[in-house]
Design a binder for these strands. Structure first.
Lengths: 195, 195
DNA sequence: GTCTATACTACGATAGAC
DNA sequence: GTCTATCGTAGTATAGAC
């Protein structure tokens, strides 16, 4: 997973993966059917990890909204905050690089990632945004929600540029908090707007 | 450029490039010093193209603001709209895939892209956002501006997911307009907010 | 189920004719 | 300045021992 994320599918060699894993190259063929199978297995692993981290919080926030214990706006801000925290955490570096690369030329691996967590997370967000922005519906609602989430995605996809713009060399907790707050403040502004 | 964008640096073969160009593989060595030199030349070309498309509009908007002929808010919205139009245009597919790949593992090519257009465009945006959001300054201002631009960047970096979420198979003019309007509306909401 | 050894292909770079 | 031919290396997949 780490090597596919760093060098891409073609740029990664099964020799290097086997060496890093301390195993024989031929084991990849035996266990996964080849390089392609190993790549798909890595995608499945990433999908499971992200689902495990993000979905429980989204589901419980959704239920709290239904019970009336949480406003839709606060639920959206909480979910976006969790997504931002994940994107700003160094442990998500391999996952995000893998997913971003896969999206530039989407294949079978993207289908699995989409079904596993991208679709459920997006649909929950769209539903919640629709509760607040009652002036929007259909694709217009989906486009506005996409913009909200886009801010968070760019934390990873344009990380190199962002680090230079913010003039930071390493990502510390203070910077993480500052960025997360800026994005959630932007989200509240978007949610308060009415067409 | 197209092949580097689609398959990445390692995934692209000099043989395939030469074949697509209708030239001999050895000409790459003669003209660019090798595969790496050709890659850097492609990055320079992308930087020049984007600068040529985007910088004149940004500079003239900036001057109109200084003259008092344009509000900073309208200037920001106009610039973001132009950026969104570029991201939604199919001609930017190779450029954006190239830049996004390069950012996942930034090297010499990213240094050139950053200096050529990412830095000038970002600094102009930050300056304009600072005129409107006078409650912000320093890194906080830069983080909010980064969120604004992030919405536009995600149009490319997460395009595969966005297309599925919006349930569209091809990008027509009607969809382009709708997405561009959603993002500029979000931008106006963020600019109107006050801490 | 994991290893070593190897077959076969494709890679980037270079030499040398023109 | 561009071509063809070729070199050495590295790629994935496979065969077969254990």
């Amino acid at each position: 997973m780490e090597q596919f994320a760093e060098y891409g599918f073609e740029g990664t060699s099964t020799r290097a993966i086997a060496a890093a894993a301390g195993a024989a190259m031929s084991s990849i063929t035996y266990q996964f059917g080849g390089k392609e199978g190993l790549y798909l297995a890595a995608a499945d692993h990433i999908g499971e990890q992200i689902s495990h981290i993000q979905l429980p919080g989204i589901i419980s926030a959704r239920q709290a909204v239904d019970r009336g214990d949480l406003s839709p706006t606060d639920a959206i801000v909480a979910i976006l905050g969790e997504m931002a925290n994940m994107m700003l955490d160094e442990r998500s570096e391999s996952w995000s690089a893998f997913i971003i690369r896969e999206q530039q030329k989407p294949g079978e691996a993207f289908d699995r990632l989409f079904a596993c967590f991208i679709q459920p997370m997006s649909e929950s967000m769209i539903e919640l945004v629709g509760m607040v922005r009652t002036d929007l519906s259909g694709r217009k609602l989906r486009a506005v929600a996409t913009g909200l989430i886009g801010q968070v995605i760019a934390l990873r996809s344009a990380r190199a540029a962002m680090m230079r713009i913010l003039d930071i060399s390493t990502m510390g907790d203070d910077v993480r908090t500052m960025i997360s707050e800026a994005i959630t403040a932007n989200a509240r502004a978007i949610l308060q707007a009415k067409g």
